[in-house]
Simulated assay, not measured.
Amino acid sequence: MSTAPTGRGPLHLSAAIDLPDVYDAPPYAELALLAEHGALDFVTLGDSFARAGLDALGVAARIAPGTGRIGLVPTVTTTHTEPFHVQAALATLDWVSRGRAGWAVDVSATEAEAKLFGRRHAAPREELWHEAGEVADVARRLWDSWEDDAEIRDAPTGRFIDRDKLHYVDFAGRFFSVRGPSIVPRPPQGHPVVVVDATAPQARETAARYADVVLVRAASAERADAARAELRGLAARFGRDPRTLRVLAALVVDLGGGECAAEPGHGGGPLPTAEGPSYRGGPVDLADLIADWHRAGAVDGFHLTPVEPRRDLERLVNGTVALLQHRGLFRTFYPGSTLREHLGLARPANRYAALVEETSLVEETSLVGEPS
């Protein structure tokens, strides 16, 4: 396992705030604010076509104005949905949250879910994750289709947009084609953060190609380290800087025991369950587990799913996180305002603006020395 301190970056923490059967916004906002009080990087809101419930992206947009720093990462299923609409909705979330949007990419693989739409039959997961990758790719292209200074808003002349700074993406993939440009200006972050759960083998290539944050489910630091190394190796093969990939261990946590020690088997690490690796015990032992895994360089952080959201998130923030902060292992305030800043990720350059600048530079260079 990689144990060199030089390879260990800041600890990142996030939490799920799923509330099954809750149809009012205030309880979600309350949990998001609690996570923000602990300076967590982001919260996730789950969603699926397989169950009834509120639309996660809509809930995130609703609670965004009531929060100030916490990242908001709803699940967005790419199967059966239009990529153009997906990117526009996520760009809107980034605007209304002032640069705190992300999206957890997911796919829909059952025939029952396909029948809800009636457009096509269910497909193999490998095919669905390839399609999800194309959606992530075209979303970024559409977010870049507006240069950052494309909006003029010049009332005297009636000019709102500099049309020279809008670009067609002309994307033609295996599953769909999109011309663009987007109908929403480039988001504050440039690209909202992409999160992929790489538990399924079919999702790993998509995660390595397109994700900013990858969730892995491992019951030991050694397995987490191996998964992180595999993902970073794939990212390098795809031409990415592997250091830009944040790999978080996903754990289900049950802190109902208060300050008691972890149950047998949990003190040395989480136990495998049908829902994924699970920790059951007290906030102090959970803080030790998080610190040990991160100190060993196995992961960049943790994504924690409370068994009982209201109870466990409060104990997580006021117990585990507070202890990590006291030990100097986790921040006590947000140094920036955007989710990318929380994660230590740079704001991406606009691919089309960079291409225009490069073309202009080539043309200027070719004119040097020509007779006037």
Rank of each mutant, 00 (worst) to 15 (best):
Y334R: 10
P270G: 02
A298R: 14
H167Q: 13
D149Q: 01
E230Q: 07
I63M: 12
D292W: 14
E82N: 15
Y28C: 10
L57N: 09
A35Q: 06
K115V: 14
G118R: 15
R209V: 08
W146C: 04
G158A: 01
S108C: 13
G53E: 11
R62C: 08
L54S: 07
T305V: 15
E205R: 14
G267P: 04
L40A: 00
R340M: 08
R310D: 14
A208G: 07
T365M: 03
L57Q: 04
A296R: 15
G281V: 00
V96H: 03
A109H: 13
D212F: 06
H12Y: 05
A291F: 14
E82I: 12
P20N: 08
P156N: 08
W293R: 08
R186T: 08
D292F: 03
R120D: 14
G71Q: 12
L345R: 09
E82D: 15
I183Q: 08
E363L: 10
E263H: 05
R340N: 07
A155G: 02
V169A: 11
T320D: 03
A262L: 13
L215P: 01
F333I: 15
R232Y: 03
V247E: 12
G102L: 01
A32E: 14
V107A: 13
T77I: 14
T78E: 01
A296W: 12
S108N: 04
S360M: 07
A224V: 06
T81M: 15
P65A: 13
V356G: 00
R280P: 02
D24C: 12
A155Y: 14
R204L: 12
D137T: 13
P270C: 08
L316E: 08
A15M: 05
L142F: 09
A262T: 01
Y334S: 09
